[in-house]
Design a protein around this nucleic acid. Structure first.
Lengths: 182, 182
DNA sequence: AAAAACGTTAAGAAAAAATTTAACAAACTT
DNA sequence: AAGTTTGTTAAATTTTTTCTTAACGTTTTT
């Protein structure tokens, strides 16, 4: 009967979706993904399980692009592979729980930051100690070594704190302090 | 007297420094800066105030590169401009307080995420409501609109929580819950 | 067993980003 | 006021990244 109205409604629906997809893609640069991957995630956020062909039709891109994009999204736990009875194609669903994505992503990154830097600090401090303890070395060099050593030691407080922050996120303890939906 | 030993000590000092600079640069990808900017920050982390010419000599890069790199580091509050009596050159110092950098950076990014997405959600929900309330529209369209609306409404809990997380970081209240140097 | 479907890798093309040299504008010296 | 110094912008180049087409290996269907 009122086909025109339904047509318009359908377009409005698409538009409303696109507005959100666009802003999700835009802010996902913080997660270090390409705009394309961001747009893919945004699309999946509003869709059911998608296979690679459906993704490529949706974004009008090639299949290999979808393959790599969906893998990077998997790497940061923003999409998951599932099974769909009947079809032999891989299908993927977006992780819609932003808390999960947030925690998973940043904890991984922060862990890495702590690990890499603490390792290099350990190496550096060993060398610096050798210089500091050798009285035959020019005093201004030894003083510099001491300065660097102290600065690195100070920075450990941060890495320690970050480790505890990650733990609090991972266990969910953070939500005792800062509850969801206060 | 023992020039050789001092020479070796000096090299060891440089090496120790470089190890840390390298790892800082490597992990700073999370902050969305180029490797060059990361290396510049790492260098400044161990130096006093530097001007553009000193930076270019240190990193063996061009002056305009240093100019843009130092600006991106300023944008994320990882270096600050200071004044040095006598010289008319701009000099910059690295922010050595990692807590400050951390909070400043992520709060800015998270604020942006919240702002952009909440704005688009508001737009989208308005459109969706129009469809939901119009009984002349095909019911399956209206149901889809309802589904999207609910999903967006749900996501607001996350943005609300993120807003409170940012507030807690900004005020320093987070440190009551998770103290530095436990 | 041959053919088709599916996902990935490889190679090449296109697009984007980073870097350098050159040119410029403003502030300072003499 | 002419000439320097300093930082930035502009244009051109190089490098890196992204994306597509083509080829491949595996699994499934017929």
């Amino acid at each position: 009967m009122d086909q025109e109205k339904d047509q318009r409604a359908s377009e409005t629906l698409e538009y409303a979706k696109d507005v959100v997809i666009q802003s999700i893609a835009e802010t996902m640069d913080l997660y270090g993904v390409t705009p394309s991957a961001g747009k893919l995630y945004g699309t999946m956020y509003f869709s059911g399980p998608l296979n690679l062909d459906e993704m490529k039709d949706e974004l009008k891109m090639s299949k290999p692009s979808m393959s790599t994009a969906v893998r990077t999204l998997q790497d940061i736990s923003m999409v998951h592979k599932t099974w769909l009875k009947g079809s032999r194609k891989d299908v993927f669903v977006a992780e819609k729980n932003f808390f999960k994505s947030f925690i998973d992503f940043f904890c991984k990154k922060w862990d890495r930051e702590v690990k890499i830097n603490l390792e290099s600090i350990a190496v550096a401090q060993q060398q610096l100690t050798d210089i500091m303890n050798d009285e035959e070395i020019l005093s201004h060099l030894r003083e510099t070594a001491q300065t660097y050593y102290t600065q690195l030691e100070e920075s450990k407080k941060y890495y320690d704190w970050l480790t505890r922050l990650v733990a609090s996120f991972r266990t969910g303890e953070i939500f005792d302090y800062l509850p969801i939906e206060e």
